[in-house]
Each structure stands twice: as structure tokens, then as C-alpha cells.
């Protein structure tokens, strides 16, 4: 870990200035990702600003008039997941958060930090390896390497990494909006699905945040998914492991007919992957296993597996069906 200056500035404009003036300055949330990467010498910030004390972060979960819920960026993952309003209205978000990491990490991790956590690609983590994300132009170690954990959708010849977050998969399915503030207090709202990027030619950019911008909150619009939703995560061990594949599946049913559906997948792409092909197929259809199977097959047809992750196509198909089945079943195990 390189030396850095630690500050706890309260003034958000001041923070933006620091971030713009010093491209090597970083916000410090729970530190569960940033400090890990700093110890690995992957991240080398020269200045850290603690988010906890920044004025604009001090929002307290106001449920807006439209019935949407705003979760503060500095709120801890664990508290967000256990917020009674979230549990009741967006149970899939609670499940997604609770499926990630460990109780200790969820107590530390902030919602903003969760969005901006970086990939777990082993080549990204090992500074002895080539990695376009860490060092643009150095090559992608994973492309022809051990890419069992890597992307099957949306990758480029520059990077095949996946975004590791579980929470973000649920947020993508919930059509959340990322609230950011930039220089001079300028506010912006970014639809969640537009927040994270595909790697393209610039894999070093995980998201569309501009220099100087901080995430202040995440807004989740009201929906009627609570009854029929589920977050499914498949992994190499029973707990405390990143997803091989995960699925956030939510639907609104009227007499077993799907009147609204939203599906996102984790572990498959550089960003949470909205399964829009499957969604399109299912809209206005009966919630049956047969339909789920067709939808899943249609979606996974578009997958482009790498040398070691062919299994994700099959797993993705089955996980889509299972998650949809369970969502249709009131979120209960089938």
C-alpha cells in the first residue's frame, strides 16, 4: 500500500474539487474493496476522503411522495438489507445484498462502494499479470487464460471481466436510479442500467461516473414486484463466495398472467445484465415453467462463452428458469 493522505472533509464541493484536481484521489466508503486493492498495489491513491462525513451524504431514507425509496450511498449494505421498508417492498434487494460477502463485510460496505467495487478477475488483482483494466494497453490476461469466472455477454477483445456485485443485479432489475453530485453541487440522475458500462475499448472505466462526481443515493421507484420476486445465486461453495451466476427475477402477476416482468443476471457481464430478450418473451404470457424455459433459452442463445466458461450458458439457462419459478411461487423454494 502506497502512502496516502487521509482526509475527512465535510464539504461535498470541496471533495469534488479534490477529486478533479487529483485523479489519484479516491473516496473511502467501507474500504472493503478499496483497501483490499490498495494492499494488492492495484489501487494506488495518493489521497483518501472518508465518505461518512461528507455533507451531501447525510440523507436519511426519505420515501418520496411517488412511493419510491431513496437509499443513501453511505448507508451500510446490512442496514439497507434489513430496513423494514426494503424488506417488505423490495425483498429481492435484501436477498441480493444478503447473498453477498459475509455479515462482517455487509456491516462495513456502503451502498455507494458496492456500486463502484471493481472486478474480482484474478489478472486484475495480480500486478504481475497483464490487464487492460488495471493498465490500459497491457493486454487482457483472462482472454486466453483461466476465464472460468468471466463474462459470456457483452465482453470485448479488451476485457472479459464481470462485475462482482449482487446488490447491483437486483438494483438493475428494479430499474433503480443512481443519484450523483458533481462539481459545484451539480446533480445528475443515471438510470441504473446506464450506470455501469460494457468494457468496449475502455475497460478501465467501470461506470459512467464523471471526474469529481460522488454517488449520493440510489432511488428505487415503486413497483408491484414484492409478491413475486426472488434473487438466486449459484456459487462454488455454499456461502461467502462470489456468484458463478445469479438471477434477480421479478414479476407482477394477474391471474397467473405476467403483466410486468424484470430480470437481471449477475456473473455474466461487465455490468449487471438485463435479460431483456427473456423479459420480452414473457410479457403477457402465463407464468409457467414451459414459458420460462423458452424465455431462458432465448436469452442464453445470445451468450458468447469463452474457453472455460461454457458451463455458464447451461447454468444461466437453468438459473433463469429456477429464479422465475421461485418468483412465481411467491419467492418460496420450489
Amino acid at each position: 500500500m502506497r502512502p496516502f493522505k487521509f482526509s475527512t472533509t465535510a464539504d461535498s464541493n470541496e471533495v469534488s474539487k479534490i477529486l478533479i484536481a487529483n485523479p489519484h484521489a479516491r473516496l473511502l466508503g467501507g474500504g472493503t474493496n478499496l483497501l483490499d486493492l490498495m494492499k494488492e498495489d492495484v489501487e494506488r491513491p495518493t489521497e483518501l476522503v472518508e465518505v461518512g462525513n461528507i455533507d451531501v451524504m447525510k440523507i436519511v431514507s426519505p420515501a418520496s411522495a411517488t412511493g419510491s425509496v431513496v437509499i443513501p450511498a453511505v448507508e451500510k449494505n446490512a442496514r439497507t438489507a434489513n430496513d423494514p421498508a426494503i424488506r417488505e417492498n423490495f425483498p429481492m434487494l435484501s436477498q441480493a445484498i444478503l447473498s453477498g460477502a459475509s455479515a462482517q463485510i455487509r456491516n462495513m460496505a456502503t451502498n455507494g462502494g458496492n456500486l463502484n467495487q471493481r472486478t474480482r478477475c484474478t489478472y486484475f488483482y495480480d500486478v504481475a499479470m497483464p490487464c487492460n483494466k488495471r493498465e490500459p494497453g497491457s493486454g487482457c490476461g483472462a482472454m486466453k487464460g483461466l476465464n472460468r469466472m468471466h463474462a459470456i455477454f457483452g465482453w470485448s477483445d479488451k476485457c472479459v471481466a464481470v462485475h462482482p456485485s449482487d446488490m447491483c443485479v437486483a438494483l438493475a432489475a428494479l430499474d433503480a436510479v443512481v443519484k450523483v453530485q458533481g462539481a459545484n453541487g451539480k446533480q445528475r440522475s443515471i438510470p441504473f442500467t446506464a450506470y455501469h458500462r460494457l468494457p468496449g475499448d475502455q475497460p478501465q472505466k467501470d461506470n459512467t461516473l464523471q471526474p469529481g462526481e460522488l454517488i449520493t443515493a440510489i432511488e428505487i421507484p415503486r413497483n408491484n414486484f414484492a409478491e413475486n420476486s426472488y434473487y438466486l445465486k449459484v456459487r462454488d461453495r455454499a456461502s461467502y463466495a462470489f456468484a458463478l451466476i445469479s438471477v434477480a427475477a421479478a414479476m407482477e402477476l394477474k391471474n397467473n398472467k405476467i403483466v410486468r416482468v424484470s430480470i437481471a443476471m449477475g456473473g455474466v457481464a461487465h455490468k449487471p445484465w438485463r435479460a431483456s430478450v427473456a423479459e420480452k418473451y414473457l410479457l403477457h404470457k402465463e407464468a409457467t415453467e414451459a414459458n420460462f424455459k423458452i424465455a431462458a433459452a432465448n436469452e442464453m442463445k445470445l451468450a458468447k462463452p469463452l474457453e472455460h466458461n461454457l458451463y455458464k450458458v447451461e447454468l444461466g439457462r437453468k438459473a433463469l428458469v429456477r429464479a422465475l419459478m421461485q418468483a412465481a411461487n411467491g419467492g418460496k423454494t420450489i
Binding site: T122, Y125, K144, L146, R237
Partner: peptide, 23 residues
């Protein structure tokens, strides 16, 4: 191991999995 560098790609306990309590 990645045969190109003969490095262990499983570098830490995050990717060298050992059983956790729920296993």
C-alpha cells in the same frame, strides 16, 4: 495455474476456496 506464466491464478482465500460453516 495459468500455464503461460506458471502462476497460481487462485491467489488468495477469495479464490482458493476452503469450506465455510454452511458447507
Amino acid at each position: 495455474y495459468d500455464h503461460r506464466w506458471a502462476n497460481p491464478a487462485t491467489r488468495t482465500l477469495a479464490d482458493y476456496h476452503v469450506p465455510v460453516n454452511l458447507d
